[in-house]
C-alpha cells in the first residue's frame, strides 16, 4: 500500500482507480450472481502458504506480472484470476513463459506441486477467483459420458477437434490436443479460460457438465480407436496422406515386383 500512496498524484491514478472500480464492481457482481462459484477459498491455504507463495512469486513471476501482481506491459494482472489459473498455468509449464510468442507453450513444469500450490495461494489471496477444483469437483464416477460428448462437441470440438486432437487458431495460435491432460488441469482451463480460450463458468456449463466432459475425455483417452491405429485422429487429411504414401507405395512396390523378370 506504500507504493500506492506514493503514486497517488500520478496522472494515471484516475485511470487506475477507475479500472479498479470497474474490476471490483465486476468481481462483486460475479460473486453476487454466484456465476463463478468463486468462493474465496483462501481459507484452505494457510498464511504460511501465502507467504511462501509470495516469495516464489516475486522471485519468478514479478518481472512480467509486477511486484503486486498488478500486471505490467509484458504480463497481465493476476488479481482475481484465482488459484485455478495459477495451478493450470504453472502446473502445465506454460508459466513462467519461456519466450514471447503467439501463445504460451506447454512444457515440463518448473515447480513442484507444493510450490505451485503456494503461488496459487498467494494469487488467490489477492482477489477472489476460481479455486483449484476439489476432489469432489473432479469426481467423474457417476458422470454421463454421452452427455459429456454432446457438451464437448458443442463447446470444445470446434477448437480442440472432435477427438480432442487439437486444431489451429489465427496467427500461429492453436488449441492443444487434450490427450494426457489431467482432470484438474482440464477443469481449471474451463473455469479460467487460459489465453484465448473462452471461460466456461458454472452458470453456462454447470459443474456436472464439466465432470461429464472430463469423463468423455477420459473415455476416449483410455480406449484406443477400435478401427486400429488412429493416424492422429486428424480426419480425412491424414487418411488421404496415408493412402497416397503407404497404400499406393506398397502397391507400387508390388507392381514393380510383378512386372520384373524372375532371375
Amino acid at each position: 500500500m506504500k507504493a500506492l500512496s506514493q503514486r497517488r498524484r500520478h496522472p494515471l491514478t484516475a485511470v487506475a482507480l477507475l479500472l479498479m472500480g470497474l474490476l471490483l464492481t465486476g468481481g462483486l457482481y460475479a460473486v453476487a450472481s454466484g456465476a463463478n462459484e468463486a468462493k474465496a477459498q483462501t481459507s484452505t491455504f494457510s498464511a504460511e502458504d501465502i507467504a511462501e507463495g509470495e516469495k516464489l512469486f516475486i522471485a519468478n513471476c514479478a518481472t512480467c506480472h509486477g511486484m503486486e501482481a498488478g500486471g505490467t506491459e509484458t504480463g497481465p494482472s493476476l488479481v482475481g484470476v484465482g488459484a485455478a489459473a495459477v495451478h493450470f498455468q504453472v502446473g502445465t509449464g506454460r508459466m513462467p513463459l519461456q519466450m514471447q510468442g503467439p501463445q504460451a507453450m506447454e512444457k515440463p513444469a518448473q515447480f513442484n506441486e507444493e510450490e505451485t500450490r503456494q503461488m496459487a495461494a498467494y494469487v488467490a489471496s489477492l482477489g477472489p477467483g476460481p479455486a483449484i477444483p476439489s476432489e469432489e469437483a473432479l469426481d467423474t464416477s457417476d458422470a454421463d459420458v454421452a452427455h459429456g460428448g454432446e457438451l464437448f462437441r458443442v463447446n470444445c470440438a470446434m477448437c480442440h477437434n472432435a477427438a480432442a486432437a487439437g486444431g489451429a487458431l489465427t496467427q500461429g495460435k492453436f488449441a492443444p490436443a487434450l490427450s494426457g491432460v489431467s482432470d484438474a488441469h482440464a477443469y481449471e482451463a474451463m473455469v479460467t479460460g487460459p489465453q484465448n480460450m473462452p471461460v466456461f463458468n458454472d452458470a453456462t456449463l454447470p459443474p456436472e457438465g464439466k465432470q461429464d466432459i472430463l469423463a468423455f475425455l477420459n473415455y476416449i483417452d483410455d480406449n484406443k480407436s477400435p478401427g486400429g491405429a488412429a493416424l492422429g485422429s486428424l480426419g480425412p487429411v491424414s487418411e488421404g496422406l496415408f493412402l497416397w504414401i503407404a497404400g499406393l507405395g506398397v502397391i507400387i512396390a508390388f507392381t514393380i515386383w510383378l512386372t520384373s523378370r524372375s532371375s
Binding site: 465486476g26 453476487a32 456465476a35 457438451l151 473462452p198 471461460v199 463458468n201 452458470a203 453456462t204
Partner: peptide, 21 residues
C-alpha cells in the same frame, strides 16, 4: 437458451471472456 440443454441464460451468467453457444 443453452445449446443443447435449452436452459435460459441470465445476463449475469455470461462473464467477461466467456463464449456461450
Amino acid at each position: 437458451t443453452l445449446d443443447p440443454t435449452g436452459t435460459p441464460i441470465r445476463a449475469s451468467d455470461v462473464t467477461i471472456g466467456s463464449a456461450v453457444h
